[in-house]
Design a binder for these strands. Structure first.
Length: 239
DNA sequence: GCGACAG
DNA sequence: ATCTTGTCGC
């Protein structure tokens, strides 16, 4: 899958945190928060990254699932180094180069991206899911396991119960109970999606577990890839 | 000034 | 993110 079919928004690695924040402020206005996005996508991709050796080595994985059967129909990985230190709010710059490389290795161009991190629910309204959506041109959703910004009340205890995630007067996402009796997840729009549809898509991907099937398969894949990279020396330049 | 802070 | 066994509960 070519990442630059729509060269409107190239990925530019920032030199420092100040520049990174400037990039986010510049790109935030180009995010499509309305969508509504695909209501019945044929394929959905999950993206995740695993780390080893004190965070100096990483593996980024993308899995593409049939949206109905949830079977994996394509997958790709990229082993590399973090491209940026971990700074809350600048998380995307750490993982994006490896994720984009993995996306480029796909055979199938997925109709939707489900990212392991927030989209709009970000201090500058431009989290990983927004950035990935903009650079790939694909509809994207952010699904976080813990909050970054915002407050909420509830949600109820049943699968499907949800509550608005609010930050500084904005509804930036939804706190969604994907399974009864488990902690909720934090869903936000990444790009070319509406929040209601994003929530529907996440529910369709969580028939059994708290996290979307997409992120679960991607998580397994990047852990596997990382483990084999470590045993074979962990030396990237010689592989 | 003091915490909080996606993965 | 990652380091990590058993254990409480459905």
């Amino acid at each position: 899958m070519s990442v630059d079919e729509d060269p409107a928004v190239p990925y530019v690695p920032p030199a420092d945190a100040t520049e990174a924040r400037r990039v986010q402020e510049e790109l935030r206005s180009r995010v499509d928060l309305v969508g509504p996005g695909p209501a019945a996508p044929a394929t959905v991709a999950g993206l995740d990254v695993a780390y080893a050796q004190d965070g100096v080595l990483l593996a980024a994985a993308v899995t593409v699932l049939d949206a109905v059967s949830l079977a994996v129909v394509d997958e790709a990985v990229c082993v590399g180094r973090p491209a940026f230190p971990y700074v809350p709010g600048l998380f995307a710059f750490r993982e994006m180069p490896a994720l984009l490389a993995a996306l480029d290795r796909l055979t199938v161009r997925p109709e939707l991206l489900v990212c392991d991190g927030h989209g709009l629910a970000h201090p500058r309204r431009f989290g990983l899911a927004c950035h990935l959506g903009l650079v790939t041109g694909l509809p994207a959703i952010g699904v976080g396991k813990t909050p970054l910004v915002g407050s909420w009340t509830g949600p109820g205890p049943e699968r499907g119960d949800s509550a608005d995630l609010c930050d500084e007067g904005d509804v930036v996402g939804r706190v969604l109970r994907t399974r009864e009796g488990v902690r909720p997840v934090f869903v936000s729009v990444g790009h070319r999606m509406g929040l209601d549809n994003a929530v529907e898509r996440v529910l369709a991907l969580t028939p059994r577990y708290r996290l979307p099937e997409t992120t679960r398969t991607a998580d397994q894949l990047c852990r596997r890839a990382l483990a084999s990279a470590v045993v074979s020396g962990g030396d990237l330049d010689r592989r």
